[in-house]
């Protein structure tokens, strides 16, 4: 009985931490649990959330993508140039951001899949390369968007802000892709056993290319969505965000060893990170202590995750003698 309960708790560790965090901040800071604030948290989560949903595909195949922070910068920047110099409008800009993301993903995939270089190395290089390209294009000056960009970013459809809609859309598409398409199932298969996947006739190269395209594209779209709420793009935008994005996915149950993770879990993980960030501001904790507090939460969550994996293993160990039942 007792073991059943603890197993259930460990299986749902992220949700439990989430609830604990909500209750804690709700007690410390009145107003934290107000509908407007919770709504705001989801809206602010959309930035990291969309990119984290994309990187989940990469993590599932045992890969890693460190370049997402730079893609978040370069993608919207290219879109901005297209909007300013060719007048493609916001919709056109959005499309350009998607194309730019696909192109950057293709660069990553080329080196990783075709040349067989480790994803860690390739995306570490493109992290510098993509940001460098943007710095060169702007001579490291801030890029200002037209008013219509802000109009898009701050608009709502049926009372729901556009960033939340896009976050939800990304979640639904990713969820269906992972659970109900051949591509999605093959992503899991590669993560479980790359050799066996190859032997099973799965085109592992194609799948791996796909996941890096998805990761870069969602990162570019995520950047575009946040920039559309700010209206300008400075040279440091997205710097270090790769860690937020990876942390969100891992918080949501994705394993860095591949094969384990869901789109749904990642979305929860991203929202959890934003909840903690907002909560820390609400409770008036010393500004300089906040990164430490956030780091602690991530640490505890990841610790719980490995504890969960270990406990589950122990609790599922076969019992030889019947006396364990009582």
């Amino acid at each position: 009985m007792n073991t059943d309960l603890s197993r259930l708790a460990l299986r749902n560790a992220t949700i439990l931490i989430f609830t604990a965090v909500l209750v804690l901040f709700g007690l410390v800071a009145p107003g934290f649990l107000s509908p407007e604030n919770l709504f705001n948290i989801v809206k602010q989560s959309s930035f990291i959330g969309i990119a984290a949903i994309g990187i989940t595909f990469v993590l599932l195949t045992r890969g890693i993508d460190l370049s997402v922070g730079s893609v978040m910068y370069l993608g919207p920047l290219i879109a901005g140039f297209a909007m300013r110099d060719y007048g493609v409008g916001v919709a056109g800009g959005f499309a350009v951001a998607i194309l730019a993301g696909l192109a950057m993903g293709a660069i990553n995939a080329f080196f990783i899949v075709r040349l067989g270089i480790a994803p860690f190395i390739v995306t570490l290089a493109t992290l510098f390369f993509f940001r460098g390209a943007g710095t060169w294009m702007t001579s490291s000056r801030q890029f200002d968007f037209d008013r219509e960009m802000l109009d898009f970013g701050l608009s709502s459809v049926a009372g729901i802000p556009v960033p939340i809609l896009l976050f939800a859309l990304a979640l639904v598409i990713a969820h269906l892709t992972l659970t109900r398409t051949t591509f999605g199932k093959q992503v899991y298969a590669i993560g479980a056993d790359p050799e066996a996947a190859k032997k099973a006739g799965i085109r592992t190269g194609t799948i791996e290319t796909g996941v890096f395209l998805i990761s870069a594209t969602t990162a570019s779209v995520a950047g575009f969505v946040l920039i559309s709420q700010i209206g300008r793009l400075d040279v440091a935008f997205g710097e270090g965000r790769e860690f937020d994005v990876i942390a969100a996915a891992v918080l949501g149950g994705a394993s860095l060893f591949g094969g384990v993770g869901t789109a749904w879990g990642t979305a929860v993980g991203a929202t959890l990170i934003q909840t903690v960030k907002t909560g820390l501001i609400f409770s008036g904790i010393n500004l300089y202590l906040q990164p430490i507090a956030l780091g602690l939460v991530i640490f505890v969550a990841v610790l719980l995750d490995s504890l969960r994996a270990w406990r589950l293993q122990v609790s599922q160990r076969r019992a030889i003698r019947a006396e364990v039942a009582d």
């Binding site: 899991y188 993560g191 479980a192 066996a196 099973a200 094969g259």
Partner: peptide
Amino acid sequence: NLFYNLTISENLFI
């Protein structure tokens, strides 16, 4: 040549 994180039917049709 099977995958622990997929169901039986998914493994057959992978």
